[in-house]
Design a protein around this nucleic acid. Structure first.
Length: 493
RNA sequence: GGGCUGGUAGCUCAGUUGGUUAGAGCAACUGACUUUUAAUCAGUAGGCCGCGGGUUCGAGUCCCGCCCGGCUCACCA
């Protein structure tokens, strides 16, 4: 029945049949380990041979066989559970005839349960001496080779379950990712934020400038969009009285795929009333410093052979100053927009009809400046033209009280004092509508209900979005976003 | 989408200017082995060389097209 499969696999299926014929269930589900391997190691790793031999306690563990060294009567195997690995010793002379037979059926990849006292071998390896053996789950497919592991990148992403078994580093990355998210929750909840869940299916995909995925609801017979941000709903919650609110959730953007972009990615957004973007600069520094210390234990970390210094305060510069310095322009020249537009034209980059100085400035910044930034840097005072949801700066209403945090040339956070003037919000949306009419596919759609919410009244507040995947890349020194997403999007085989 | 680059056994990889029947290590199978940990030793088996055309007496190798990756540029977080 498995004739079209590789030989190894049909052999394993036959082995399972033989095991069943002997009355052994190859998928036994009633073994309950009393101990975790990590806990045993924590207790015994530091103890010497004699001390361990005095311990009468029998340990019971279950896990996956990751190594087999069978030598006839004397058999060693490596067992791994979620907390670690430990060596198991089985001597054939201790086992019943049935168990001796079962021992010979074991393969790397199988799950077993064992129990026994601990000892140290001749080579001082901490080992559990088990006189029994319970097969818990038989494995059919062979795992990758033990010292090269799974190298084929495509196979690693498509069959992440194999990658996770074969590559310890990959397990660590996802453990770190979970720790980052858990610590962010704690950081925010310690400060009075509460977590909310807002709609992923939306009829107006707002809160960011990006192209959405479209889907369809059959019963209502309407098209819906997968959210590109959580912003507008979280601010509605601020209107409703949740003065400190956050969400960690998946966002979807129908755009290119690269080492820094996955079509679905995880974003943290948080909003706090009676705060402005200066407060968020401080809060961002605190949050990152706390994460760096907990995850990496230091503020200077290496990322892809470069050193990143997270020692606060982080550098900050306005977008205009950054571009003025780079191109040798005056502020007046930037505001006129001609110099920046000419620079873009020279580079073969075109703007749309009607794009103002703000879009030109932002484009030049992204082209010429952003990628040169290494250490965490706050870029502040984004033009109103590219910031339809941000509050205007009181001294200079052409720019907003907004910043992005750039690390190693990549945007990691975007934050601003929130626009809470409904009349201004309506104007901004109308400007976006005009840009859309001229062909800007990423222009923000008009959201009348959101304007109504602002008319009910939103207290002054500030909000921030942080890309969790990118943050995880920096904290785990990963070269691609696919290394920090368990199942990145790939074209179907 | 453009450029560069890759796809050979379950896994990691060789494969010469085109030339017998496509190789190795690990994993697997049979056997030996009472402290191994890249165990060792003897033997056996395992291939749609990504897919489809073409050139040639002869193609894993050369040419064309396609599929699926990786890096990179452009757009985006």
């Amino acid at each position: 029945m498995n004739e079209d499969k590789p030989e190894i696999i049909s052999q394993r299926y036959q082995k399972i049949e033989k095991i069943r014929e002997r009355g052994v269930n190859p998928y036994f589900n009633r073994f309950k380990p009393k101990n975790q391997i990590g806990e045993i190691r924590a207790r015994l790793d530091s103890l010497g041979k004699e001390e361990i031999e005095k311990i009468e306690e029998e340990f019971s563990v279950a896990g996956r066989i990751v190594r087999l060294n069978f030598m006839g009567k004397v058999n060693f195997l490596g067992l791994r559970d979620r907390t670690g690995e430990i060596q198991i010793y089985l001597n054939r002379t201790d086992l019943s005839e049935e168990k001796q037979w079962l021992l010979k059926q074991l393969d790397v990849g199988d799950f077993i349960g064992v129990s026994g006292k601990a000892f140290r071998t001749r080579t001082n390896e901490l080992t559990i001496y088990s006189k029994d053996l319970i097969l818990v789950t038989k494995s059919i497919r062979p795992l990758p080779e033990k010292w090269h592991g799974l190298k084929d990148v495509e196979a690693r992403y498509r069959q992440r379950y194999v990658d996770l078994v074969a590559t310890p580093k990959v397990r660590e990355i996802f453990q770190t990712r979970a720790a980052i998210i858990s610590q962010i929750r704690k950081f925010l909840e310690d400060r009075g934020f509460i977590e909310m869940e807002t709609p992923i299916l939306q009829s107006i995909p707002g809160g960011a400038l990006a192209r959405p995925f479209v889907t369809h609801h059959n019963a209502l017979d309407i098209d819906l969009y997968l959210r590109i941000a959580t912003e507008l709903h979280l601010k509605r919650l601020v209107v409703g009285g949740f003065e400190r609110v956050y969400e960690i959730g998946r966002c979807f953007r129908n755009e290119g795929i690269s080492t820094w972009h996955n079509p679905e990615y995880t974003m943290l957004e948080f909003y706090l009333a009676y705060a402005d973007y200066e407060d968020l600069i401080k809060l961002s520094e605190e949050m990152l410093v706390s994460l760096l210390q907990q995850i990496r234990g230091q503020l200077k970390i290496s990322f892809q052979e470069k050193e990143l210094d997270f020692t606060p305060p982080f550098a900050r510069i306005t977008m205009e100053d950054a571009v003025a310095k780079k191109l040798g322009l005056s502020k007046e020249e930037i505001r006129q927009g001609l110099a920046t537009k000419n620079w873009l034209k020279q580079k073969g980059l075109k703007l749309l009809e009607g794009d103002g100085w703000g879009k030109a400035l932002t484009a030049v910044f992204e082209q010429a400046v952003e990628h040169e930034i290494l250490n965490p840097t706050f870029i502040t005072q984004f033009p109103v033209e590219v910031s339809p949801l941000s509050r205007r700066n009181e001294q200079d209403p052409e720019v907003t009280d907004r910043f992005e945090l750039i690390i190693a040339g990549k945007e990691v956070a975007n934050a601003f004092s929130e626009l809470n003037d409904p009349a201004d919000q309506r104007k901004r949306f109308e400007e976006q509508a005009r840009a859309k009419a001229k062909g800007d596919e990423e222009a923000h759609p008009i959201d009348e209900d959101f304007i109504q919410a602002l008319e009910i009244g939103m207290p002054p507040c500030a909000g921030e979005g942080i890309g969790i995947d990118r943050l995880t890349m920096f904290l785990t020194d990963s070269p691609s976003i696919r290394e920090v997403i368990p199942f990145p999007l790939l074209r179907p085989e």
